[in-house]
Design a binder for these strands. Structure first.
Length: 292
DNA sequence: AATGAGGCCTGGTTGC
DNA sequence: TGCAACCAGGCCTCAT
């Protein structure tokens, strides 16, 4: 599932294969993919055609491509199964949701860019920019998304204060993109394991030091995952060339229910958590003694 | 206002 | 073997 490290891998691929190219044509192949576009797929295609991509940026799990029109950007969210791919034809890409005819500015051959998305939780939108609460210009759909731990302007102390003002299970909070962006179910579980914190601890009961520790662990886990090219369990997350990352072998708790904790040997527990699941070690992520 | 539940999706797996 | 039920979890909307 694409979380921050995986999305960053994709951003680098876009920087290499989309940036510097002119959009000779674009086709939205599945209406749901343009559902965040105010006036639908037709508007998406009209706004983008003839523009040149000038930069690839990311905040949390949100990607955007700047264009030669400073007030127009294409934002993308991969959802659960979104991918950007280069080349091939429609027959190669069963779940193609958008096609980009990319014209290089000089010398190189034309390419075809694809947005694939099996489960259609992902989306694309061409919008303008707005100033976020810190004054940075972000695409309209990214308004309200907090900075992520890879952002040079990410501030641990400020984020920690915000977290401790909340009164919610810490696992749930790590998934709240308006507080800290980029963390999904996998890295939330891994970060809490590394920090030795029970996922259902309430944020208002955590010390400032513990909260900072959790944020540090999240950053560390995601950095290691990025260095490994991201986490892949299957073909749902791949880079623009279709290659998988290798971090799944580095996971300590996620998807390892019943297997021994790498730190203390106690079997990992999987617990239902809303529509999803939490994985943790009951040996080294102890619940508080009193009800919390 | 903050919190939490439900909804949107499809392909692979599981169980009968 | 065939089919149905279940599972995965990103973000959003809505009810409390």
């Amino acid at each position: 599932m694409p979380e921050l490290p995986e999305v960053e891998v994709v951003r680098r691929g876009l920087a290499e294969h989309f940036v510097g190219r002119l959009v000779g044509g674009v086709a939205v192949l599945h209406a749901r993919t343009a559902r965040r576009q105010e006036a639908g797929a037709t508007q998406f295609e009209a706004l983008l055609t003839g523009r040149t991509f000038t930069g690839a940026r990311r905040r949390g799990k949100f990607l955007w491509l700047a264009t030669d029109d400073a007030d127009l950007v294409m934002t993308a969210h991969l959802g659960m199964s979104g991918q950007f791919r280069i080349d091939g034809d429609a027959a190669d890409h069963r779940h193609a949701r958008a096609r980009f005819d990319l014209v290089p500015t000089a010398g190189l051959r034309p390419t075809t860019g694809w947005f694939l998305d099996q489960r259609t939780f992902g989306w694309l939108a061409v919008t303008g920019l707005v100033a976020d609460p810190t004054g940075e210009l972000v695409p309209t759909p990214v308004m309200g998304i907090a900075r992520d731990p890879f952002d040079p302007a990410f501030d641990v102390a400020t984020t920690a204060r915000l977290i401790r003002r909340r009164r919610v299970e810490v696992k749930r909070l790590l998934l709240d993109q308006s507080v800290v962006a980029g963390i999904g179910n996998i890295y939330a579980d891994e970060a809490l394991w590394l920090a030795g914190v029970y996922p259902r601890r309430r944020t208002d009961r955590l010390s400032a030091r513990t909260v900072r520790e959790i944020l540090g662990c999240a950053t560390e886990v995601m950095s290691q995952a990025l260095a490994a090219g991201g986490t892949s369990f299957d073909a749902l997350y791949v880079d623009v060339n279709g290659a998988s990352g290798y971090f799944s072998r580095g996971l300590a708790v996620y998807g390892r229910a019943g297997q021994p904790c790498p730190r203390c040997g106690v079997p990992i527990v999987r617990e239902a958590f809303g529509n999803r699941s939490s994985h943790f070690c009951p040996g080294c992520q102890r619940p508080p003694r009193r009800a919390d």
